[in-house]
Amino acid sequence: MTNLDKLEANSVHILREAYREFKSLVMLWSIGKDSTVLLWLARKAFFGHVPFPLMHIDTHYKIPEMIEYRDRVALEWGLDLIVGENRKALDERHTFPDGQATRVECCRSLKSEALKHTLSGEWPRRRMDHKVGRLEAEERREAFTGVIVGARADEEGSRSKERYFSARDRQNEWDVGDQPPELWRQYKTDFAPGTHVRIHPLLDWTELNIWEYIERERIPIIPLYFDRGDGRRYRSLGCYPCTSPVVSEAKSVTDIVEELRAGKFRDIAERSGREQDKEDGGLETLRRGGYM
């Protein structure tokens, strides 16, 4: 088995374990490369099917192409897509930079808060209606307690300590010091009622592994990652006020793999274009509060 084969097998095993153990399971799909690889792995695990819904939190600051891509793929692959948002924060302009929030506050309200209340079903959400081919308001909103997330350990410090199955308490908080043991393909899959669980099948993948796998499997990926003529491309996708493209002439998946293996990005952290990480406490503060 190659390294990619091993990574794939381990992720598939975790996805199947999650599907077996959690009744109300959902997968977060940010439209980016990692969660799209995760979606592909789900199709691997379940032989072409995705037997749980996908959730996207729309901050309304996403690059517009992302939304088009999302809806198109959802329709093509027959995905059960659920979309949520923080309507109140958007209406009251508790946002950055055109509102009164800092980057971290904006992230917290448009992503963390929106996610928490969308998962619980408290806030309105829309679901893809495949008969009419568009998102429709969802009436009966199930609460999800198992959430599959595409976090990778190599992204930054706090993520390097995650478990494949990671419990959050009712406040969605994370106790880093007291995490369950994971050994011999046995994970913590028993939880007190009301516990929210994050499942991280991509934990052992690096950014390079992700691109190598996209290349091997020919996974359709959003073109924002490629240089389309102006010598710039996105290396990491987020909201446009906080995500900057990098200077790069990588025009294809193969170019990106080459760039990461031996080229200019060999030793530059992926999230270097993400501004919210650099403010006080950064991503760790956000993650403790439920950021994915």
Binding site: E156, G157, S158, S160, K161, V176, G177, Q179, T206, E284
Partner: peptide, 27 residues
């Protein structure tokens, strides 16, 4: 490596943190 605040203040590693690197030979 002790990227989390908890660990820096206590000066001990509390969880198995992974870090990724490569040499000429392998990853």
């Amino acid at each position: 490596l002790d990227a989390l605040k908890d660990e820096q203040s206590q000066g001990i590693t509390i969880d198995a943190a992974r870090c990724f690197f490569r040499t000429e030979r392998r990853r």
